[in-house]
Amino acid sequence: MIEIQEVTKRYDRHTYALKGITASLRERVTTVIGRNGAGKTTLIRILSTQLFPTKGTATIEGLDILKETKKVREIISSIPQESQLIGILSPLEQMQLYLMARGFTASQAKEESKHALDELELYDYRNAPSDTLSGGMKRKVFVAMALAAKAPVIFLDEPTTGLDPLSRIEVWSAIKRLSSKIILTTHYMEEAQELSNEVVVIDQGNIITHGAIGNLLSSFGGKMRAEKMDGEEYDIKIANVAIKYIEKERVDEFIAKGYDIKRINLDDIFLSKGVMLES
């Protein structure tokens, strides 16, 4: 379990990346979603002991990130959003170094790395200089690091950004097979829905919704989403797309008006909380 207690992060005088957030993350997989600049990476970096909070603290499986840093680092593995491979080293070499830093012996590290690379279909590239891998492959190497590390708690900051649909499914199934607790961020709502039982929606440094996906979806009370370019009736308008949440009985009526009808999903939780409204 992860307990976040009034965590605030101020980067400089004007930038409050997190404004005193509190939450308990209890489920095995928790997804953090939010717009660009919402504060997701800041939160992940604070929880994984890479960044000091300005105020507040958090505990990971009962261990305080400020007072018990060393113990926390023993049980976590964190893949930063912006990390890139050292181009001149091979995926296998870098994974080995990472795993050794996590306490594996050299030979253990090599074996586990090979296994994880194989799982993500990267085995054939294990000895190639990383510079020669494609962007998505490079990203997958980092995911492989997290898988191979087998830490009790894993933080994945946008693990599947830039991956093709097949690779994404590979990563998903690998994540599902793990028994670790996982906190991940993503911009793909279907990913959050596929993987996690719990989502945290952050906007401008605040948590605006947090809960089990099923509960959040049921707050729409069985409504549907109707959307149309330049539609006249709307609850939310994004660019020129009009979005209206309607009762099931009105579906035919809106189809006749030229609206597309969609089933409610996480996008709608995101949209309806006003997250997109300022754009």
Partner: peptide, 21 residues
């Protein structure tokens, strides 16, 4: 480069090695 650009330092911070290592 490791700290600012490719953020490899960040990757190692959240492990068992120390800054001294």
């Amino acid at each position: 480069f490791f700290r600012i650009q490719i953020r490899i330092q960040d990757l190692f911070v959240a492990t068992r090695i120390t800054s001294q290592d």
